[in-house]
Write a protein that binds this DNA or RNA. Structure first.
Lengths: 202, 202
DNA sequence: AAAATGTTAAATGTCTACAATTTGTGGGTG
DNA sequence: CACCCACAAATTGTAGACATTTAACATTTT
């Protein structure tokens, strides 16, 4: 194995599950979430659930009203979507520029692994896994370039954008686009990588 | 009075207080925060405090390590600061463009009030109040243009940027700059307002 | 009949106690 | 002397009970 087995905290697992449910559309916009029900579903008490709901609210996936609970946020209006695409491009281009020569062979191997997961998920038509691998690929670069700080800035934007992908954008070109980015990075061709990246973010 | 007296939830008060302490520098970077101590200080239990710490962590003011508590985040490195200035400008310009003709007389009156607070705070040399009024001014415009959604995107960036203002930037021109923005908005001169805005964000 | 008001049920907000994890310390060993 | 292991103190994570607020419904009044 590539790294030591690390345990995943309960809250993170719950958060991941809920994020998936929201982005996949299993939880439709405006769905009200009940703390007790979620606690029962995950077999924990309301404490951790509350923490997760607060997190997802800050990430923009949920909206909270005082003493009235939280519900799934609506999709972005086109103007907002446009702004977020723009910002996301800025962030990722910034990341790539700061990455010049910083990536090791181990990093490239890790990225290849993610790309392989992406390909497999696409072949198996598991679009939800495609999305996860897609996000993982970009997140790996973001984290390598700017650490958690940059990830914290980037992640909520991506999540919010993904709420709009109601199986609209086909993942047909997804693998190729990421392959292009990775190859350019390996060759240390920053401008090529930047162009490929901009094409991928839409 | 301009609007109905609304009660402020406990958590919000605690959050505001801690945000102030961090931005003003009363809580230096890397200071470790103890949940129980904070609970005692505010006269509540650890529950609400935990919620607030989670919020501020998501806002980037604090950093959390699993089972190890939270501490005040460090100041941004110059590269990050540059990126954030760029993004903040994008967001605020976007807001102003979407604001064309949407502001009512009541909005302008509200903005004038904030500007007055800014002037008073400057005259009294209360720089912390200057900062608050400054943020309020921009937030009012952001919210008017894009609602809570846009505020949620914008707020963490501003907070993070403000952690760097260790009384470096003098608030000398602050009032004038905001006056210029407001006047341009009143005259519906979007391009002028945009230019004034870009000059103010630094 | 419509509007306002009182009541009730259900959800969130908060508190206390307990469990689990981490960190620092001390003693032992190579 | 350095290193490692075990132990203990402190802090965070979780659970369950209680308090408070909200929203809906029934009731009363005009």
């Amino acid at each position: 194995m590539r790294e030591a087995n690390k345990i995943i905290p309960v809250r993170e697992q719950i958060a991941d599950q809920l994020r998936s449910d929201i982005i996949s559309g299993k939880l439709a916009p405006n769905t009200k979430l009940n703390e007790q029900q979620l606690a029962n579903r995950f077999g924990v008490s309301r404490g951790p659930v509350r923490d997760v709901l607060l997190q997802l609210t800050k990430e923009g996936l949920l909206v909270a009203k005082n003493n009235c609970g939280v519900s799934v946020n609506s999709v972005l209006d086109p103007s907002m979507q446009e702004l977020m695409i723009d910002i996301r491009r800025r962030i990722e281009v910034h990341a790539i520029r700061n990455l010049k020569g910083k990536l090791t062979e181990m990093d490239f191997a890790e990225l290849e692994d993610i790309l392989e997961r992406l390909q497999d998920a696409f072949d198996a038509q598991e679009f939800h896994e495609v999305t996860k691998a897609d996000i993982d690929f970009h997140m790996y670069l973001i984290r390598a370039a700017g650490g958690d700080e940059l990830v914290n800035l980037w992640y909520p934007i991506v999540l919010r954008m993904r709420m709009n992908y109601k199986r609209i954008s086909d993942p047909k070109d997804c693998v190729d686009e990421h392959r292009a980015i990775l190859d350019a990075l390996k060759a240390n061709k920053i401008n090529v990588a930047t162009t490929a990246l901009r094409a991928n973010i839409k």
